[in-house]
């Protein structure tokens, strides 16, 4: 079996090895960037990589921000990477081992940035899959909401937020919520992500927080409570359990990323 299972690993796995990436996931970010060019902006200075272990996205970010740049440019650039799992060091990346759903973690990230705003926040988070589809989807969405919570505290207006999603039952509710905070929300699927999986990425462009809302991080507040003051429809807290009501749902446009020459990750050779 040994030999055959090795053969079965797809091209992206081999390519990642060749190019020195820690995971094949690197190509997902690269292909998303091929489509949206969010990393090609020379003004990109400060970025946060959430759920980053083993660190291939951070590697991509490190290359983009620190290769062929002047010392001066380098001084104002910063990458922070966070994960539950420990990560071996990457040049120019500050790593943090913590749970991103914990408000204390967000506080620590904010502290690292001081008063500076970030230009780009991404999260490739994937929780432990239990097999309870609804719980798995919920926890996945909570990772996104935590990432979004941080984003609202740190992202400059017009900035970009990218996060992994699994397109399950309640994905349209998430689309609708993100629509309140960004000008443009697209569900993108890079060719390097398996066609047989439900994985896709939400690319949120043009951060535009509601003018009447000031995000305020409190370590004793959950994500839901954090957003309750913002008008993300369902997120209301009241002194009553709500009667059942259908939530606002919306479908984000779907886009496939990676050029035609990109390899198909479902194919086996």
């Amino acid at each position: 079996m040994g030999k055959s299972s090795k053969d079965k690993r797809d091209l992206y796995y081999r390519k990642a090895k060749e190019q020195g990436y820690r995971a094949r996931s690197a190509f997902k970010l690269l292909q998303l960037n091929d489509q949206f060019h969010f990393l090609d902006d020379t003004n990109l200075k400060r970025v946060v990589d959430l759920c980053a272990a083993p660190g291939s996205w951070s590697q991509v970010l490190s290359k983009k921000l620190f290769n062929d740049t002047t010392l001066e440019q380098q001084n104002e650039r910063k990458i922070v990477a966070v994960d539950l799992q420990p990560m071996s060091p990457i040049d120019h990346v500050v790593t943090l081992q913590a749970d991103i759903t914990h408000p204390k973690t967000l506080k620590r990230i904010l502290e690292i940035f001081g008063n500076e705003k970030a230009d780009f926040v991404c999260s490739d988070g994937a929780p432990d899959v239990t097999g309870l589809h609804d719980l798995d989807e919920y926890v996945q969405q909570q990772l996104i909401m935590s990432a979004l919570q941080l984003t609202t505290c740190i992202l400059k207006e017009g900035g970009t937020f990218v996060a992994k999603i699994f397109r399950g039952r309640d994905i349209d509710m998430l689309y609708s919520q993100l629509g309140y905070l960004f000008e443009n929300v697209v569900c993108a699927k890079p060719k390097s992500s398996r066609g047989t999986s439900l994985e896709a990425f939400i690319v949120c462009l043009g951060y535009k927080p509601p003018s009447n809302w000031k995000p305020r991080l409190d370590v004793d507040f959950s994500v839901e409570e954090f957003f309750s003051t913002c008008n993300l429809n369902k997120l209301q807290i009241s002194d009553k359990l709500q009667d059942w009501h259908e939530e606002e749902r919306k479908i984000a446009p779907f886009m496939s990323c990676g050029d035609l020459q990109s390899f198909d990750s479902d194919a086996t050779y």
Binding site: H102, P103, V139, V219, D220, S238
Partner: peptide, 18 residues
């Protein structure tokens, strides 16, 4: 009947639970 009488938390420990 679903009226919330009170809410209790453990301060500083508001991370997600499985």
């Amino acid at each position: 009947i679903g009226n919330v009488v009170s809410e209790k938390v453990l301060p500083g420990e508001r991370s997600i639970l499985y």
